[in-house]
């Protein structure tokens, strides 16, 4: 018990909170950007544009079937060979956006697919252009349908930020590792507290997803 009290001294907690902030910050930016990327790629896939949709679909399939860890390595070690200097933060965000963007694209595609095609036809026959119909009629319903899947993907994204410790992104898990590698009696207290921190963030997000799912089902 005493170990726990020592381990949770203000100095350590503050250090962990700094890591937590990086986790949240990287997650938020990645969620925002990957949502945009997913939306665009999902639309392209759905619209079946000649060649473009097939190529985009192929790339999405490749990315979706690779481990995120590998994509993190590619962005951290690979992008610089194309002349783009990366640091752990930008490399992690880029990797998360690429990976989660591809995952979200699938959700978006099937979300739009779930909207009755009659809606689009109806909107078009009322004089709307394709873009207008998509934006005003189809998209709002599609987004509504895919909210639960989107949110659970965002939960995955938050958890996945922990993988970036491998390129020394100074996020929550990495900060915990620094503390317990300097005083190994803190091993258990550190894992307890970071598990709780991750749990609180992800559980709240999951609950929102559950709530929306129930609301939608009714």
């Amino acid at each position: 018990m005493e170990t726990f009290i020592h381990a949770y001294s203000w100095v350590d907690i503050r250090f962990l909170l700094q890591g937590l902030w990086v986790t949240i910050y990287v997650s938020l930016i990645s969620i925002a950007l990957s949502f945009v990327v997913g939306l665009i790629l999902g639309l392209i896939r759905y619209m079946k544009i000649k060649y473009l949709s097939a190529i985009v679909g192929f790339i999405i399939d490749i990315i979706r079937n690779l481990p995120l860890l590998l994509i993190i390595f590619f962005t951290y070690f690979g992008l610089p060979q194309l002349g783009i200097v990366t640091n752990p933060t930008s490399a992690s965000i880029t990797a998360l956006v690429i990976f989660e963007g591809a995952m979200l694209a699938e959700i978006v595609r099937s979300g739009i697919g779930s909207v009755d095609p009659g809606q689009m036809e109806g909107a078009r026959s009322n004089g709307m252009s394709y873009g207008q119909a998509m934006y005003h009629v189809v998209m709002p319903q599609a987004l509504h349908n895919m909210i639960p899947a989107l949110l659970s993907q965002f939960v995955s994204l938050v958890k996945d930020t922990s993988l970036a410790t491998i390129i020394v992104l100074s996020e929550l898990l990495y900060h915990a590792q620094i503390i317990y590698s300097q005083n190994t009696t803190y091993l258990i207290p550190m894992y307890v507290i970071i598990a709780v921190m991750y749990f609180i963030i992800c559980f709240c997000l999951s609950q929102v997803a559950n709530y929306l799912q129930k609301k939608y089902n009714n």
């Binding site: 939960v155 922990s162 993988l163 091993l187 258990i188 894992y191 598990a195 992800c202 559980f203 999951s206």
Partner: peptide, 22 residues
């Protein structure tokens, strides 16, 4: 379900690798 869905896999694996064996 709540526990294992909301904690990163890496954290779970580390607990089994570093704490359980001790």
């Amino acid at each position: 379900i709540a526990i294992f869905r909301n904690i990163p896999l890496l954290v779970i694996v580390m607990i089994f690798y570093l704490i359980v064996p001790r």
